[in-house]
Every structure is written in C-alpha cells, then in structure tokens.
C-alpha cells in the first residue's frame, strides 16, 4: 500500500515538474499576468493597482488581472507572491506596510521585505496631512503641541489600526515634537474618518486622496504636511520641517514587485512596461484623479528609501514594544 502511494506521489510530482519550461523571456508575457493587491477590493491600493494593471495590459496585449488577497496587515498577499513561481506572471502591489513595517511587527513572517522580492518600480508616493476637525480649537501645529505639552496624554489621535504607517508615523512625529497623546485605533480608514468627524479624536494623519475631500468640504483643517515640500494643492500648509520638527517625514508609497528569482530579461520587460505606463499622460491623469501623483525613482533610490524606512519603523516598533506574535 505504502509503495503504491509513494509511486503515485512520485508520478504526481513528476507531473508537477513537467509543465514548467524555463520562463521564455523573449516572448514574455505570453499569458495573463496576475497582480496581487494585498488589500480588499475597493480601497485606494486596489484603485491604484487596477489603473496600473489596465495600463500595462493595453501596452503588453496580455491581460493583467488584479487579484485581491487581503488579510493580516497585507502580509498574506505579500507572502503569496514571495513564495510563488518566479516567472514574472505573479506580481505584488507593494506598500510600506508589507515591505518595511510587517517584518518588524509580526514575529511570524515567511518572507523578507528586501530579499524575497525584486523591485520593478515605484508607482506613486505621497506625504501625509495632519488634520484636525473644522471646529477644532487648534489652528496651528504649534498650538496643538503647546496644548499637548501643557496637558500630557489628554489628546487623542485616531489611526486605521495598530502598526499602520499612520500610527507609527504619528508616534514618530509626536516623539520628535516631545509630546504624548493617546492612540485610538480603528478598524480601517473609513471607521477612523467617521470617528474623526464625530469628534472622538482630536487629530489624525491621512493621505491626500482621503484628506483633500474633507478639507475642501470644510469638515477638516490641515495643520501640517509630512513631506519634504509643501503640496501644490495646499500652499499655505507648512511642512513639519518648516515647523522645526526634524526627522519626522512620513509618506505612503506603492511599488510593483516581482518574486526575487524572476529572470532578468523578464524583469527588464516588466520595468519597461511600467515605465512606459507611467510616462503616458492618460495614466498620469487617471492616477491623479484617483488621488495619486505618479512618482518615479531609480531602483537604488527606491532601495535606499525602503532601507531608511525599515530602520525608522523598526526603532518605533521596538520602542513601543508592538511586536505581534
């Protein structure tokens, strides 16, 4: 009996080995490419992923299909890509949560944000905007900090969850400003915005695509921008560096990644496809209307940015003892 099972298993594994000829790079892609978005359908990451997939599909002539594999702070989707066949037919829409936060945050993780992936390129990058409700007593970041200093631990800030970039970034900003506030985590961006608008928390940070509608609709006021430069849409809002807070920049970014051992010619094809997609004004416009500014970066700079964030997030997570087992 055992020999029978063993021989069947042997035959099956042979079968499994057979139909994988070495990825023929010269005619890549010759079938549908799956882009794994590690968040639920309908979110901003999903929107960006679908726009990019659509653009790359029209350039390559083969379908680029978005598959949402959500869960565990986007690590399930990232792990799936890390362990897939490295043939370029399964790609990951990577964000900082999967690449540089999760490796610190989760004790059990089956991939490495740097070594498990080969980057194809950056898609978009944006700073966060610090918001207070429109009827808030704080009309500047300095006023907020002054109050927080006089009343330690009394202010609340909301985030879309523990260990999100919003949470870690705000902790860093508060630490750099020398104040403390209570963290109120919500279950995702939408509930956190509802809590913010309902006056449950005193301030939040959000990306421009979530923040701008609230600012324009007079529901929220922007006090600071966490990027290196002011936003064209908000010329009067100072950056945190303008306010004298050093080393507290934070940003959200999306990049396209392939599994590490993807053949170089396939990577080159994918990089050129992405590059041409992002150079097309129609796609730039589509992304901008969805709230994202196209940002390109050469691969060494992307790597450097990720390493820098990896170090910074690691520090906060250790300091706050946030590791999830």
């Amino acid at each position: 009996m055992f020999r029978f099972i063993a021989s069947v298993a042997c035959a099956l594994s042979l079968l499994a080995a057979l139909p994988h000829p070495p990825a023929a790079a010269q005619n890549f892609p010759s079938r549908a490419v799956t882009v794994i978005v590690p968040f639920a359908a309908g979110g901003p990451t999903d929107a960006a992923g679908r726009i990019i997939a659509r653009a790359m599909q029209s350039l390559s002539g083969e379908p680029f299909v978005v598959e949402n594999v959500a869960g565990a702070g986007s690590t399930i989707g990232a792990a799936k890509v890390a362990h897939t066949q490295p043939d370029g037919y399964t790609l990951l829409l990577a964000t900082s949560s999967a690449m540089v936060v999760a490796p610190h945050l989760y004790a059990k993780i089956t991939y490495d944000g740097f070594r498990s992936f080969a980057p194809i390129g950056l898609i978009t990058e944006a700073p966060f905007i610090l918001l207070v409700p429109a009827n808030s007593r704080f009309d500047s970041y300095d006023a907020l900090v002054a109050y927080a200093r006089a009343h330690p631990g009394q202010l609340n800030y909301g985030t879309p969850g523990l260990g999100t970039v919003q949470h870690l970034g705000l902790e860093r900003l508060l630490e750099a400003s020398g104040v403390k506030a209570a963290h109120v985590p919500y279950k995702g961006t939408a509930p956190s915005l509802i809590g913010f608008l309902g006056g449950e928390v005193d301030f939040i940070v959000e990306t421009p695509n979530a923040a701008m509608p609230l600012i324009k609709g007079d529901r929220a006021r922007a006090l600071a921008v966490t990027g290196p430069a002011r936003l064209p849409a908000l010329p009067d809002v100072p950056t945190v560096a303008d306010l004298g807070v050093k080393g507290a920049d934070m940003r959200s970014w999306f990049a396209l990644m392939a599994p590490r051992d993807t053949p170089a010619p396939v990577l080159a094809t994918l990089r050129s496809l992405l590059e041409r997609s992002l150079a097309d004004p129609a796609n730039v416009k589509a992304l901008r209307e969805a709230g994202f500014e196209v940002a390109t970066m050469d691969l060494p700079s992307l790597h450097k940015m990720m390493e820098q964030e990896y170090g910074q997030f690691g520090q906060i997570i250790k300091a706050q003892n946030l590791v999830i087992r």
Partner: peptide, 23 residues
C-alpha cells in the same frame, strides 16, 4: 465615507472613475 464593505467597493469604483467622493 463608506459604511459597509459594499459601499467601500462603490467608492473604489468611483475612485477608479476619477471621482473622490467627499462632503
């Protein structure tokens, strides 16, 4: 702001259409 997963999907569709819903 979406109040359930269905609304979230609709907002996602709008974002892809180039409309960011807000107040």
């Amino acid at each position: 702001i979406p109040s359930n997963p269905v609304m979230a999907l609709m907002i996602g569709a709008l974002i892809i259409q180039g409309i960011t819903p807000g107040p």
